[in-house]
Amino acid sequence: MILEQAILNIKPEESIVFEKAFAEAQKIISSMPGFVNLDLLKCIEETDKYLLLVKWESIEDHTIGFRQSEKYNEWKQLLHHFYDPFPVVEHYETVISI
């Protein structure tokens, strides 16, 4: 299991529109092979900041299966214009889980 993590800084005053677009975009990502689950968390201290956590069966399910798919183009169209700056995406694997 792989955890994808990205901090999403949204352009000022666009959070409400972003959340509506994300509601559409989540239908795309959740339909992809290897997708396990997703959490989108809103920062309490910073109004236009979110934390995206996505679990995948493997890193390839994200980097190849999703990112190189036609559906990823739809995802980009829905979401990428909201980011400032563009997020850094990192992948993690569990070392210890309690």
Rank of each mutant, 00 (worst) to 15 (best):
L40K: 02
I29V: 15
F82G: 00
L79R: 07
L51S: 06
H91A: 05
T63M: 12
E24R: 10
K76N: 10
Y72K: 00
E24K: 15
H80P: 02
A21F: 12
T63C: 03
L78S: 01
E60Y: 14
L53V: 08
Y50D: 06
Y83T: 03
S97M: 06
E4T: 07
L52K: 02
Y83G: 01
N9R: 05
V89Q: 06
S69I: 01
I29H: 08
E4Q: 15
Y92R: 07
A21C: 07
P85Y: 02
S58T: 15
E57W: 05
I7Y: 13
E4K: 07
Q77H: 14
P12D: 03
D39W: 12
I2R: 09
V36W: 04
I64S: 08
I44K: 04
F18D: 07
Q26C: 04
E45F: 12
E4V: 06
D61T: 02
D39M: 05
Q5E: 15
V17S: 08
F35C: 06
N73M: 09
M32E: 09
Y92S: 03
V36I: 15
H62F: 14
I59D: 06
L52H: 10
F35H: 12
E14W: 13
H62C: 06
S15K: 11
V54P: 01
K11I: 05
T47I: 08
S31Q: 12
M32S: 11
P12M: 01
F35G: 04
F22R: 00
Y83K: 02
S97P: 03
Y72C: 09
I59H: 02
T94R: 00
D84W: 03
V89K: 05
W75A: 00
F82A: 00
I98Q: 08
D61Y: 09
E57T: 07
